[in-house]
Design a protein around this nucleic acid. Structure first.
Length: 442
DNA sequence: CTAGGGTTAG
């Protein structure tokens, strides 16, 4: 049974390979070889291409290296696939060797093949090499298309040559190649990444004037620019404009916007955007939820924000999200602000249980609120957690115990302080208590 | 006779 080509068979084979552990995959290629190989080169090319599209690059290389054992000669298409393979592997220099070989042997690669290689060089910041390839194209009279230029534009922006990208865009127009929305998006993105959103906006107008239709990616570039420049509210305006243009914001639009608003302290508006996202059905990821929650907690002196913080925190707990240490700190602080001593304490214990370091400031705040609420026993139990409160917390505790005439409690606190190397100014009432403690701990 | 090429975030 020879390996017979049909699209179904190729897809089937790739599927079967995908189901295998990585280490066992090369064996399939060997089995093809022992299985009488390929009838035609086109069968071979089809499978090679299938490997490359399926990201099985090692298998593609292995298959290619077996080529002569099937007594087949590579053609233009075979080489093109291998160029794609090396580009995917981020080895454009290897790909270029193949292009050179093709050109030398008068097997002329098409624009698409050149574009793949130019893109690979650009993506890795080797714009010079990309331009060199463009030069080879010129030599054999292959004209770049707008896609080729788009790759170069992105490459130029990537290496910080936005000015040059802009100039190239002008030249493209002059040479009567019609830019498309990818072209404009690429240069706009370049401007936005260096804080020149206004120039990006001018380009957007130009694109609109040409009848091009901006998409979410185009707008997302502007979002990024606005937030880089500290203009979060203009981002909100942009969202509105997007919708008016019937361009539906995607997940990246929303999360960029949300992140920008949080970064610049527009927490209330951020909460609104968050609700909108959830309403549409976007899942807000854990990291973003942590950021949102921290923002809400920072504003928790406003009652409404505290309420939101509670809601978001509950939701995260219900969904089993990981709550970061920095988030716990702020949540506990918010509970303290909200005079919810028990919740503050519960979460402090929770924080200790999951193994997070307990910051002094957090311990202090919990001890303080527990004392204010008259929960002395709980305040005392904070001392058994792993973490050292500040001297003033020990002072407050000793004072509270003294005030209630609880000499033993005060002595315990004093002892705990001394044990961790803190000598409070406050002393347990009655000298004997202090002396006892000092004798037993020092 | 045909494969195939270009976007975005914290």
């Amino acid at each position: 049974m020879g390996y017979r080509n049909s699209r179904l068979r190729v897809e089937d084979l790739v599927k079967r390979i995908k189901a295998l552990p990585t280490k066992q995959r090369p064996r399939i290629v060997d089995s093809i070889e022992t299985d009488r190989g390929f009838q035609t080169l086109s069968e071979f090319n089809d499978l090679l291409m299938a490997f490359v599209t399926a990201d099985e690059l090692e298998l593609a290389l292995k298959l290619y290296s077996n080529l002569c054992s099937y007594q087949l000669d590579p053609n233009c298409w075979t080489f093109s696939i291998m160029i794609r393979c090396y580009c995917k592997k981020n080895e454009p220099n290897e790909a270029k060797k193949i292009i050179d070989h093709m050109v030398e042997n008068k097997i002329q690669p098409t624009v698409a093949t050149f574009t793949v290689l130019i893109n690979a060089f650009c993506r890795s910041g080797r714009v010079q090499k990309a331009l060199e390839v463009l030069g080879i194209m010129g030599l054999i009279n292959r004209k770049p298309t707008i896609q080729t230029y788009n790759c170069l534009l992105k490459g130029l922006c990537y290496v910080g040559e936005v000015e040059k990208a802009h100039e190239l865009l002008r030249n493209i127009k002059k040479n009567s190649i019609r830019p498309d929305i990818y072209t404009y998006t690429a240069v706009m993105d370049g401007f936005c990444k260096v804080g020149r959103s206004d120039e990006a906006l001018e380009l957007l107008d130009e694109a609109l004037g040409m009848g091009l239709v901006p998409n979410a990616v185009t707008f997302n570039a502007l979002f990024t620019g606005y937030f880089k420049e500290g203009r979060p509210l203009e981002g909100v305006g942009l969202l509105k404009q997007m919708k008016e243009r019937n361009c539906w914001p995607d997940y990246i639009s929303y999360s960029t916007l949300l992140h920008g608003l949080l970064k610049w302290g527009e927490i209330y508006i951020a909460m609104g955007i968050y609700k909108e996202m959830v309403g549409i059905g976007f899942e807000v990821d854990e990291r973003m939820m942590n950021t949102l929650l921290r923002g809400l907690c920072r504003r928790s002196r406003r009652e409404e924000m505290l309420k939101y913080a509670y809601q978001v925190f509950d939701k995260m707990k219900n969904e089993g999200s990981v709550i970061y240490a920095s988030t716990y700190d702020l949540v506990i602080e918010a509970f303290c602000i909200g005079k919810d001593a028990d919740k503050a304490m519960d979460n402090l214990i929770e924080m200790a249980r999951v193994g997070y370091a307990l910051r002094r400031i957090t311990l202090d705040k919990v001890i303080h609120v527990l004392c204010v609420e008259g929960k002395l026993e709980e305040a005392l139990s904070v001392l058994v957690l792993h973490g050292i409160p500040s001297k003033s917390s020990f002072n407050v505790l000793i004072h509270e115990f003294n005030r209630r005439g609880r000499r033993l409690g005060a002595g315990n606190v004093f002892g705990a302080a001394v044990k961790v190397g803190v000598i409070p100014e406050r002393e347990p009432r009655g000298c004997s208590a202090k002396r006892e403690v000092l004798i037993s701990y020092v």
